[in-house]
């Protein structure tokens, strides 16, 4: 077992261990906190696929997070109001089922990523960052100016969406569900990374000219990664809506895009468990330093500075050393 594998295992066990002790100590708030970390980790895992593997610094992933959130919010709000989503040409009813919310949000985000990617992936560097940001801002202002679903005030949900055989309103089952989804997503990314497509994607980041010489166009590879990345982040957004039982345009704001980038960098860019490490660290700082001062983000800034200056590989790089061959 390599050092990174051991570290990954420890990271994967840390959150359930924390939740188990919170459960024993009857601190449901801490379980919710861990759930929040897991959801942010899932969103950042999605971003890591584009940013870490593909070298695509998307500053617009909040759009996909928000699309996932609104998919849940819109479907659930129609279910709770007993109003159909659409009557003609055919009837679509709202639903509380997560198993419908997730694919709807993911497909919607995937379609949005196709459009955003079609334009932004023709550019690189700062232009790519700015175009993804611009698109996310468009979604943000669209959500603000859409009164049917709460507009600026957001959209409260009375219940958490349902999952077969589970009471999702209780913190522990909901955490378990989120955590299983997170681990599956990380496993999926690990599988991708080791696959042919993953090798091509890592290649598109390292030396695109070599990829071209191998007969592989970087655009298609990047686009595929961008779409999958958006879908994973949308899944996180959908769960985030259920966690808070509230959806608002702030899910799409550039702050959230920035936060996701920070999570990836803190944990270790392109490291499979980096987003989880980053999210746990971030939520811990938010909770601990947030209890001391309103300006807790100052500490995040300090930490980010330290990572960028002294530990480019993030937390994982610091503890497990250089990344393997990819």
């Amino acid at each position: 077992m390599t050092r990174e594998t051991a570290l990954n295992l420890a990271l994967a066990l840390a959150l359930p261990a924390f939740v188990a002790s919170a459960y024993v100590a009857e601190e449901p708030f801490l379980i919710t906190l861990a759930t929040r970390a897991a959801i942010l980790a899932l969103a950042a895992t999605g971003l890591n696929l584009a940013l870490g593997f593909g070298g695509l610094v998307s500053f617009g992933h909040a759009a996909f997070f928000g699309i996932g959130g609104y998919a849940t919010g819109i479907l659930a709000s129609h279910a709770q109001d007993y109003t159909p989503l659409m009557e003609s040409p055919f009837l679509i009813e709202g639903t509380q089922a997560m198993l419908i919310h997730w694919p709807v949000g993911m497909i919607a985000a995937g379609c949005a990523a196709l459009v955003i990617g079609a334009l932004s992936l023709r550019t690189s560097g700062v232009y790519f960052i700015m175009i993804t940001l611009a698109f996310a801002q468009m979604f943000y202002y669209f959500a603000i100016s859409w009164p049917a679903y709460g507009g600026e005030d957001g959209l409260p949900l009375y219940l958490r969406s349902s999952f077969p055989g589970m009471n999702t309103l209780q913190p522990l089952p909901f955490f378990t569900l989120v955590f299983v989804v997170l681990i599956l997503a990380i496993g999926f990314c690990g599988m991708l990374s080791a696959s042919r497509f993953g090798l091509a994607l890592h290649g598109a980041r390292q030396t695109p000219a070599r990829l071209v010489a191998a007969g592989i166009g970087p655009f298609g590879v990047r686009m595929t990664a961008f779409v999958i990345s958006a879908m994973l982040t949308a899944l996180a957004g959908s769960l985030f809506a259920d966690l808070n039982r509230f959806v608002s345009p702030s899910m799409m704001s550039w702050h959230l895009s920035g936060e996701l980038i920070v999570l990836v960098i803190l944990g270790g860019v392109g490291r499979l468990f980096g987003p989880l490490a980053g999210a746990m660290l971030y939520v811990a700082i938010e909770h601990v330093a947030g209890g001391l001062t309103d300006h807790w983000q100052f500490f995040v800034g300090l930490l980010l500075l330290a990572v960028v200056l002294f530990a480019r590989g993030g937390l994982i790089g610091l503890l497990a050393g250089e990344r393997g061959h990819v």
């Binding site: 080791a194 696959s195 042919r196 010489a213 007969g215 592989i216």
Partner: peptide, 16 residues
Amino acid sequence: LAAMVKEGGPYRFFRP
């Protein structure tokens, strides 16, 4: 990476 195109292309996501 260079051999992929002749052997079925890069869009395979599952097998290592």
